[in-house]
Write a protein that binds this DNA or RNA. Sequence first.
DNA 1: GTCTATAATGAGATAGAC
DNA 2: GTCTATCTCATTATAGAC
Lengths: 173, 173
Amino acid sequence: MARNSTDTKEKLLDAFDILLDKQGISGATLDAVAAKAGVSKGGLLYHYGSKAELIKGSLERLDRLVDEDVESMKAAGERLHLYYLETSAEIGTPLDRSLIAASCLAQENDEAKSALRRTREAWFNALNNHLGDADMAMTIQLIGDGMYFNQNFGLSQDEALAHVKNVLARLGL
Amino acid sequence: MARNSTDTKEKLLDAFDILLDKQGISGATLDAVAAKAGVSKGGLLYHYGSKAELIKGSLERLDRLVDEDVESMKAAGERLHLYYLETSAEIGTPLDRSLIAASCLAQENDEAKSALRRTREAWFNALNNHLGDADMAMTIQLIGDGMYFNQNFGLSQDEALAHVKNVLARLGL
DNA sequence: GTCTATAATGAGATAGAC
DNA sequence: GTCTATCTCATTATAGAC
């Protein structure tokens, strides 16, 4: 049992994101989210008064997780761009789940599209500040986007990452 | 009025793909598809007996369009990889709409996931045969995936393409 | 080949008890 | 803060007329 409101709200967002990831929009119904979070639909609607609010909550959490991720990138120092690529294909992390959820929602929700745009801007700025080379920053970001996109429909990106690293080596990175 | 069955079926697939692109899965209802194609729901269900069959029809058309696209890539000769990147960010073509539709569906449909995997394989083989370099073929494909992914949520990729071409020039491509 | 009418289901949301 | 019960509406699908 969740002791306080914050815990339950986080559990609800977790359930929502996971259902979006695994079953898509049609699977992430209020009934299913409530069941997965271990509360009733009425319980869910106490915390998030409508599906729109649940979506808003998920996207706000994405913003927070991206801020944290940019800090982690900076902490990687000289390996910043490699850290970015390695984590682009990562699965199962809170950030990854949150991102996939937003990608699902973006299909039919403009707020989600905006959230993803903000995410990309934050990462591009980090890459560009580090590399001092907009061409390379954009190219590396696109490669990360590509790996993320593929991983999304069930393709392991381990091999892809190895190929990319070979190319980056040729570019002195 | 469509004179024959084939015309109406194509119109229905067009309407389905466009609705998926613009409004996502929730917007692409049978009612909406029928209305956009200019027939009644009963008319739609005569041609495609269920939503599952409509989805199947859309994915089969994607397969055909991809086959044609691979032929176009080969026809581009030495510019094959550039042709690939330039068309990755293209919008409004039948192939593009069909691909976005499949990406939408992939969120909750395994057949759509498989169709996208086949698409990627076909393109990778074309790139790899042309370049004779799996590292570069994979990297270029990922960049194309990235541009496609971004264009999907409303970011023009013209600037991105220019950045990428600068990097490819450094690699002698 | 296309239509209308309607059945059956499942969704989001509200009301009020505990 | 969480529950059950219920309302309303949209969606898929069927039946049968034209």
